[in-house]
Design a binder for these strands. Structure first.
Lengths: 332, 332
DNA sequence: GTGAAAGCGCTAACAC
DNA sequence: GTGTTAGCGCTTTCAC
């Protein structure tokens, strides 16, 4: 219960050796005579000495720690990314430190700035990836972006957003739907890719897409937007949501408004968060491979840290998961 | 794109002043002559200088950072705790660093050990709170436990587990149920408190509790245990789950097994995670005040860091949230 | 206002 | 094997 921790010098004094010896012993850099080793062990034990990682890092320049910045720790997609990243990090004896930027670009930067010097490398998911990417570059700290940023020389792992919505539209088209809506999240750059993919598939069938927007990529966002979509002048037969959370909220509110799902409207999301399986109707979605994304990104980062330097942009492939929230269009 | 960051000395050299001056300027400790200030500003700008927090922390002994260790970042209960904690930390200009111990007591200790020296204080949720608590005490690092640990001299904020299940049982009793089961998570110390609370309420009615166990406090855990509970020799009319996640998994599997909910069985959870509102039937639960727990705990920690030292154990009160997963017992 | 110097706790040559 | 020494990048007295 000492208020101030013992230092390497205290140990050295107590064991009657030099600080260098203690340092080497603590780091297992060398072998020692049994006598010295015993004294060292005893002194460390009695003093309750623990080496100060800050001081060590300052010299070695390494922390054996990796920083992960996520946009919203509440979103299962991100927690799964984290799980995947954690698994790989653990295998390589790295510790993960997380920071939640809370969808706030202003804080984002300062949080990453605070995190960066304390870690060996960074895994970053950001709304402003390109900007952050450039800034990271001049920071000179190894990083991997959790989103494709081909325009910056930083490795990244992303997801084929165009293909995801393209597939979703094709699926809905096959079910006989003609009036499709997209409920997006405008503040996000990949939102446009998702719209493009949907439009491309629709264009092939000579159809157009109605685009709506939510204020947040969350269930609350989906709830809030539902009545506008479903009770507006262009009620869709099917709606594709920016992500599963929005879809979950949308479905809940649609039911509250008296609609029967999927009879009155088909709904699909993207990410395949675990909870999509527990709602009714079970959510049709695109498997976003969140955990895999975390794994791949972490592996890339560790490779970079180990000297390998192949700056490429991995693209994870989407896979359609059909469940009960999408059904054949009713006649009329 | 320099590989090595500029130091305070580079700035001093470039601006033609001493390092002490730069330090004071960077920390806003003092006022300067406009001439010096301008030179400083320019040098810092051109060099892209950022002060190294490691070096600073080593001297000041403070990091302006708080470490939070959670058991499972995938569990919405914990992410909400984190949200609450983050909110008040932000107000006081503290940055949060998280670590996910992944329900693994062995890693728990080493992760916290790695985290502790890099932060000013700790917020810890652990399966082995008492043990960790004692250890924390001799570490001398301010900490607050996210669970009541009255037996250790560490502030903590917890939740009235006995009252929670007591209330749940009373609710179920009022609905006419007589055969109640509890689906718990044995590895958790508070599991016993929850069993006690349920038993106390049941005893008043001259009834007994059937206790089952899951291998994990997750939806998968609930799913896996469901058939054992529902198709065993003592099929219950109502089951209380250790937490909402288990309840969600249990409900899903019960439906798969052909049961109609809540007609065939009433189900209740604890925590009030957001997704309980999106499933069908909507989950009856106990509001666990996760966010509030995070807020209170962080406030306590910050108070401690500011010199206040009232080591008490806050107990948050449970509140019953009745939804559709609990209904009147059917005759028979 | 500004600077010189000591040193935070530790590691890494290098010498013995 | 073990000790000496010179810092890592920064803050902090204490002079001027």
């Amino acid at each position: 219960m000492k208020s101030v921790s013992p230092t390497i010098r205290d140990v050295a004094a107590m064991a009657g050796v030099s600080v260098a010896t203690v340092s080497k012993y603590v780091n297992g850099t060398q072998r020692f005579t049994p006598a010295v080793e015993a004294k060292l062990k005893e002194a460390i034990e009695r003093l309750g000495y623990r080496s100060n990682p800050l001081a060590r890092s300052m010299i070695t320049g390494r922390t054996r720690t990796i920083g992960v910045a996520v946009l919203d720790i509440t979103n299962p997609h991100f927690t799964n990314v984290v799980k995947g990243a954690n698994r790989v990090a653990l295998q390589h004896d790295y510790t993960l430190l997380f920071v939640d930027t809370e969808e706030n670009p202003a804080r984002e930067r300062s949080l990453i700035e605070a995190l960066a010097p304390r870690v060996d490398g960074l895994l970053i998911s950001s709304r402003i990836s390109t900007e952050i990417g450039k800034w990271l570059l001049e920071l000179g700290k190894p990083a991997v972006m959790l989103r494709r940023v081909p325009e910056v020389a930083i490795p990244s792992v992303g997801f084929d957003n165009r293909l995801a919505t393209y597939m979703l539209v094709r699926h809905l088209l096959n079910l006989g739907h003609r009036r499709l809506a997209y409920l997006g999240f405008d503040a996000e750059t990949i939102n446009n890719e998702r719209i493009e993919g949907a439009r491309a598939a629709l264009a092939e069938a000579g159809l157009a897409l109605d685009v709506y927007d939510t204020h947040a990529p969350t269930a609350q966002g989906g709830e809030a937007a539902c009545s506008r979509v479903m009770l507006g002048p262009k009620r869709p037969q099917a709606v594709i949501c920016y992500n599963d959370l929005i879809a979950l909220g949308f479905m809940k509110e649609a039911k509250t408004l008296g609609f029967s799902l999927p009879r009155d409207v088909s709904v699909a999301g993207i990410d395949n968060v675990p909870y999509g399986e527990y709602v009714e109707p079970r959510l049709t979605t695109i498997e976003g491979q969140s955990e895999r994304m975390g794994e791949v990104a972490m592996q890339k980062l560790i490779d970079t840290l180990s000297g390998r330097t192949d700056i490429d942009n991995v693209m994870l492939e989407p896979r359609l998961v059909v469940r009960d929230s999408t059904a054949a269009a009713s006649h009329g």
